[in-house]
Amino acid sequence: MFKKEFSPGAKSKVKSSAQRAIRAKVIETYPLIEPYIDEVLPKKEQLDLVKIPDRVSLYCNGGTPLFWQHMDDPIVPHLQLVHKYPWCFTRVRIDRGGIRFVLSGATLMVPGLTSPGGRLPGGEESEEWANGGKEIEAGDVVVVDAEGKENACLVGVLKMGTKEMKEKKKGPAIENGHYVGDGLWKLDLS
């Protein structure tokens, strides 16, 4: 979605009522974040809303980007936030071969997740990708880690449930995600 670099549009303050709504929405979408919500979205802090092209709005706290949202799609964390609190989100992992495609902005394809280097929920219990054995549904937001890397490389909305992925083993998994090094990542908010 942010393949091209762009410059931020108008910046405006978020009303405190809207801020509460965002907070509730974030907790609803990412239940795991709840214990950290005061760190991520401090109650007293004034949030800013930055308009960026393609009808995307980016919420930030001072100079740090937090979440972005495309129209009324689910609210998605910025990768800088993901890197700080990786355990707050549902995660999957791709194999090493797929990383370079992801970082050049390609659609994430299912084989990258189902191959030996990839991880989907329901695998070994001890790994953080297990998600308690629960499958992830299409339309949910996932953070995508990469094999052999510590930090996540992509975050986006699943096009296909993980159960279906395991059966089909092909097709697109995430389109239009936010990856490290894309326009949103490079966005200068100062």
Partner: peptide, 15 residues
Amino acid sequence: RKVVYCGVCTLPPEY
């Protein structure tokens, strides 16, 4: 977590 970002390409160094 404190993540180090590369000063040249802004990515986490592993990328």
